[in-house]
Every structure is written in structure tokens, then in C-alpha cells.
């Protein structure tokens, strides 16, 4: 399996650390309430199809990236720097 690092280019999966759903980017406000925090920390979708996951190019440039990928076909659809996504939403 190979992933694309937006900084370094295509690399072997071994260079990446897997974190999980990119929902981790949407940290609630401290006073958002128990339900929202529970959602953020614990609840995850497990789709057969397209996912948006957070990976870190840990053995490479250390960039955190959001990878869109199909869990059925294993196709890697898109890689975006987490900082770019946050910059866009800010």
C-alpha cells in the first residue's frame, strides 16, 4: 500500500502512522457539552467505501495529512495537509 504525502510524494505505507477518522480535526469547544465530546473522542463511522482518515508521515517530513481512500477498492483518492484544511476552515 502506498500513500501520497503532499510534501514528499508517494511513499510506502510503512512510513506513515495511522490515527483514524479525520473527525479528530474538529475539536469541540470546552463547553460544547458531553454529547459532542463523546462523539469527538469515541464515536466513529466504519464505512465500506470512502473514508477520510488522518495519517502522519512520521518517518518522512512529519506532516499530518488527511487521506481520502476507498476501503473496498483500496483506492487512494486524495491527500491534503491537515494545516491546509484547518487554514481553509479558519
Amino acid at each position: 500500500m502506498r500513500l501520497i504525502c503532499p510534501v514528499c510524494g508517494e511513499r510506502d505505507r510503512r512510513e506513515f502512522y495511522y490515527m483514524g477518522d479525520a473527525v479528530a480535526l474538529q475539536r469541540p469547544e470546552p463547553d460544547a457539552g458531553a454529547a459532542e465530546w463523546d462523539d469527538y473522542v469515541h464515536l466513529r463511522e466504519n464505512p465500506a467505501g470512502v473514508t477520510r482518515d488522518l495519517w502522519q508521515h512520521e518517518a518522512g517530513c512529519a506532516a499530518w495529512i488527511v487521506v481520502r481512500r476507498n476501503t473496498v477498492t483500496h483506492e487512494v483518492l486524495e491527500s491534503v495537509l491537515a494545516t491546509d484544511l484547518k487554514g481553509a476552515s479558519a
Partner: peptide
Amino acid sequence: CARTQLGHMP
């Protein structure tokens, strides 16, 4: 140049 691995080493 590149940042990668040498075996299990950075």
C-alpha cells in the same frame, strides 16, 4: 534529498 527510513531507523 529525502526523509525516509533505513531499515527501521530514521
